[in-house]
Design a protein around this nucleic acid. Structure first.
Lengths: 152, 152
DNA sequence: TATTTTTGCATCGTGAACGATATAAATACA
DNA sequence: TGTATTTATATCGTTCACGATGCAAAAATA
């Protein structure tokens, strides 16, 4: 008995898992010089869009839990990219704000998306397929993220 | 200055990264009862296809390095799923073979792929888009994996 | 055959992910 | 108002991922 459905090549999740790993690693040449990791880059993207956010908002944005985000932010605070201050209206909150160093990194990072596109085009021929997948990925993400929206 | 290209929602890799995370976590309800993790499930898929493989072959199959796979296999040996014996023809190699327990798990796991499909269909409406992405993912994986094939 | 290079595996350290759990503050409710 | 519940964050432990490095065996080469 062979169990076709158990063959690795028939596993869609394995493709997703591998493609994600490899894509993240494709960022390394551009993130290493900035001294940040990919998840840290994601945090910066969020803060560059809107500075001064509580931990939970950043976590929601990245679809991660605070037990992942808190240590991540602590490491980034340690390396001088951001600050975590007590919230005033809600003292439970920790407001995360960029330092000068964190803000300044945006200038150095602004070309990363195009660099990565170029890198992917160079290695795979085109970036079209990747863009084509976006709606399907979004649908998958929306379905699998157990957001309580819809339960008033 | 807003830098459209630095907006999180415009980051294709973030989608990929998130979708992969969420999809792996969708396996939990089915893997937890078997006492294995998703990467361990992948190792088992490889060994169920072909038992008795050296570490490097498993690593190649999963597109991971031995420094990831070795500890993974050590944990699986510890939990009684497989054995790692010295290779005879090449004594550097460690031949990984399933134990009875590891072999038996296949019966319990054989419905996981359909369970997951059903789960994804339930949550996202369909699994078609996911299947549609396969060729694009494969192309991405092939491009980004720096296989030295082609350099004789 | 002797030496160099490559290969296969392992170890170490760091940074995620994430389940489980804890704590204090805010909110809801009796 | 007092109590219960929820929320925001943090800590801990385990497992991955992966860069760097080490080591011994095999293969290639001089």
């Amino acid at each position: 008995m062979v169990y076709e459905q158990l063959k690795l090549n028939n596993q869609l999740c394995f493709r997703l898992y591998t493609a994600a790993r490899l894509t993240v690693s494709a960022y390394h040449p551009y993130l290493d010089p900035l001294g940040i990791t990919y998840p840290q880059y994601l945090v910066l993207l969020v803060l560059w869009e809107q500075d001064r956010q509580p931990v939970c908002d950043i976590a929601k944005r990245l679809m991660l839990d605070t037990n992942t985000v808190t240590p991540l932010l602590q490491r980034m605070e340690k390396s001088g990219l951001l600050m975590r201050t007590k919230g005033k209206t809600d003292t439970r909150q920790r407001i995360v704000s960029l330092t000068e160093k964190g803000t300044a990194l945006r200038e150095q990072a602004k070309h990363i998306p195009e660099c990565l596109s170029a890198s992917i085009i160079e290695k795979t021929g085109s970036v079209e397929e990747l863009a084509t997948m976006a709606p399907a990925l979004d649908k998958l993400i929306e379905g699998l993220s157990e957001r309580q929206i819809g339960f008033p």
